[in-house]
Simulated scan of single mutants.
Amino acid sequence: MKKIILAIDSFKGCMTSEEVENAISSNLNSKEIEIHKIPMSDGGEGMLEAFISAMGGKIKEANVHDPLMRPITAPYGITSGGTAVIETAKACGLTLMTAEERNPMKASTYGVGELIIHAMHSGCRNFIIGLGGSGTSDCGAGMLRAISDSFPAEKNIKDIICNEMKNCSFTLASDVRNPLYGPEGAARIFAPQKGATENMVAELDERAKKFACESALIMGKDTSHEPGAGAAGGLGYAFLQYFHSTFRSGADLLLDLSGFDSLLDGTDLVITGEGHADAQTLMGKLPERLLRRSQRHNIPVWLIAGRVSQSNKLLSEGFQRIYSITPECMPTEKAVIPDIARENIKRWTEAHLLPIIR
């Protein structure tokens, strides 16, 4: 065993991608083995840091508003080539509100628009937008309002796009493929996770349909049923409908930017993972994308997670080994405490990874 790649998604609510990878590598003797750590994100939590690391950029801060229109300072990234990297959850994320405050009838994406304008003032015209982790379901209306407010001399959003933002392009990093509204739309699938009651879901879905009709009249097209329109509570729709935007798998985009395929040369083992692995892992999530690329080079892939279910399905798809780092008897509320998670990772590393290196 000579070379290992660590490319592990964050353990959400517990440890970042970088922290998980550091916890593993710190228990390995780097003199015995070549270790490559690639911070990972599919467009959700940790997206900003992972993409800036891969692209060689820097973090900036902007004064914006959170989902409940409270002033906050939010980070975004700028690469050396002048591309802005925006993790929308930094301005409209679910974690910016307490459980009691969460209400997608009120939560706004206004702060996302403010981040875009701040990046434009910094000279950026190309944007990579991560759409995971939102606490909103406003179809991006708040974002559009913030942009409109920044150009008061222009008559409407279409004029702003044609005159002020005509050279801007947006790449949307997300693996969500839901439409804006309907049975599989943003409100019905995602709003309950953001605090919506059954009545709220119905009203939000109707609002989305109405907003799409109004937007179709403004822009002369309708993207409400395109894959990804329902991402981030319909924020994906606003980007598709109003701007020059394209969707990319967040995982594939980051792997390309990281030069992952070229790094596979001479690699003996790839270790990937996420907080909870199950059959949904195989639906285009980051570990699955890593698996497919590694399979083309006949490199074995191990999958680790805080918890694992449906392991037989995962094994049948090609993961060589699958591990849950959490002891079965340990309750989840204890397992997600970072210090305990680090101890669990150390125990797993010593029991399963060190023996194959020595």
Rank of each mutant, 00 (worst) to 15 (best):
L6N: 01
S10R: 06
S10K: 07
S25V: 12
L28Q: 09
K31C: 14
K37P: 10
K37H: 13
M40P: 11
G44T: 01
E45S: 02
A50I: 00
M55D: 07
G56L: 11
G57H: 01
I59Q: 13
Y76C: 03
T83H: 10
E87R: 00
A91W: 02
G130I: 05
G132V: 08
I147W: 03
I147C: 03
C162M: 13
F170D: 02
N178I: 03
L180Q: 05
L180G: 00
E184N: 01
F190L: 12
E198C: 06
V201C: 12
E206D: 11
A208N: 03
F211A: 15
L217M: 14
G220H: 10
D222A: 11
E226A: 03
A231D: 03
F239C: 04
G250I: 07
L254F: 03
L255Y: 00
L255V: 10
G259F: 00
D261C: 09
D268Q: 09
I271R: 06
D278I: 10
L282T: 07
L282E: 03
K285T: 03
R289D: 00
L291D: 10
Q295K: 15
W302L: 04
G306Y: 06
E317I: 06
I322T: 10
T326Y: 08
I337Q: 02
D339H: 11
I340G: 01
I340F: 09
A341I: 04
A341Y: 00
E343R: 06
N344P: 02
N344L: 07
K346R: 13
T349L: 10
A351M: 13
I356A: 02
R358I: 09
